[in-house]
């Protein structure tokens, strides 16, 4: 019995260590963002002496980070919306129709999620230059939508396949058109899968930097994470200000995670395996 108690304590110690390691970097962000550069010199890791919002005021004065935040919201919003729409149509076709090469198509499309975007950026950059779309929302939205298609199609097709044929047969007998079946039956019934796919995709676009850096190079068009990565060089001397920027970038993720935890966990784990 003693041995069991001991192993239980060991496990708790291991778990608590894990939690501390997981949370320390986040703790650091949320205490440093309130400090002044002077305070940071003598109080690096402790709690802030006062909860001053001076750093956020300074961030907003420059206005750039606010602009980046808006850019990120617009680009992530539209890319996710379009990607889900396009993927749900493709998923509907793959799950519900018979055509030659169907399973090969499904495998080919979903396999693309393995490919590094770095492979695609040079030719895509050349195309976007030709189309005059560099430094516009369009280039980023088009590319993000495409890059998310494999995973969205994967998640949605699998869910569509699980919807009973009976429901669709009944709708056909009632005289529903194909579009009505897609729009009135498949989409509403698949809401859990759609929310899951949308959240996972949103997370990807929100956190992405390579495409952002390459296709949105002007200060005005930049998105938040690439902007932040440049921040690092710009404000190396003012760590608290940088941490306030980091906080602005991660707080939306936190809020959405806490609201939709089960969808995230599902989208990122189970969905990837099925």
């Amino acid at each position: 019995m003693k041995k069991i108690a001991l192993s239980r304590i060991m496990k708790q110690i291991i778990m608590i260590t894990m939690v501390v390691i997981a949370l320390v970097p986040i703790y650091y962000v949320f205490v440093t963002m309130f400090k002044s550069p002077d305070e940071y010199l003598f109080n690096k890791w402790g709690l802030p002496l006062e909860l001053s919002l001076e750093n956020f005021k300074r961030l907003m004065e420059g206005e750039t980070i606010f602009r980046w935040l808006i850019n990120s919201l617009i680009i992530s919003g539209f890319s996710v919306l379009i990607s889900i729409l396009v993927a749900s149509m493709m998923g509907f076709a793959i799950a519900r129709f018979d055509f030659p090469g169907k399973s090969a198509l499904f495998v080919a499309v979903t396999s693309l999620l393995v490919l590094s975007p770095a492979v695609l950026v040079i030719p895509l950059f050349k195309s976007m230059v030709k189309l005059g779309l560099i430094n516009t929302y369009y280039s980023a939205i088009i590319i993000y939508t495409g890059i998310m298609l494999p995973i969205s199609t994967y998640l949605l097709t699998n869910f569509f396949k699980s919807i009973h044929n009976d429901i669709i047969d009944a709708a056909l007998i009632d005289g529903c058109s194909l579009f009505q079946i897609y729009y009135r039956i498949m989409i509403p019934l698949s809401m859990p899968a759609i929310v899951t796919a949308a959240l996972t995709n949103w997370l990807y676009v929100w956190n992405e930097i390579l495409i952002g850096l390459i296709f949105l190079q002007s200060d005005k068009m930049r998105t938040l994470m690439p902007g932040l990565s440049l921040f690092k060089g710009k404000y190396t001397t003012n760590i608290p200000l940088t941490m306030a920027g980091v906080a602005v970038a991660i707080i939306p993720t936190f809020v959405i995670y806490l609201m939709g935890q089960r969808y995230f966990v599902k989208g990122l784990t189970e969905g990837a395996v099925k």
């Binding site: 729409l85 396009v86 493709m90 129709f97 018979d98 055509f99 030719p123 195309s127 890059i147 298609l149």
Partner: peptide, 24 residues
């Protein structure tokens, strides 16, 4: 009809994946 539903997705895949790979 199935092909129609496939079309936007395929077009997107061509533009973002297939054409860049061929160009590369």
């Amino acid at each position: 009809a199935g092909y129609i539903y496939l079309l936007p997705g395929l077009a997107w895949i061509f533009f973002v994946f297939a054409i860049p790979i061929i160009q590369l």
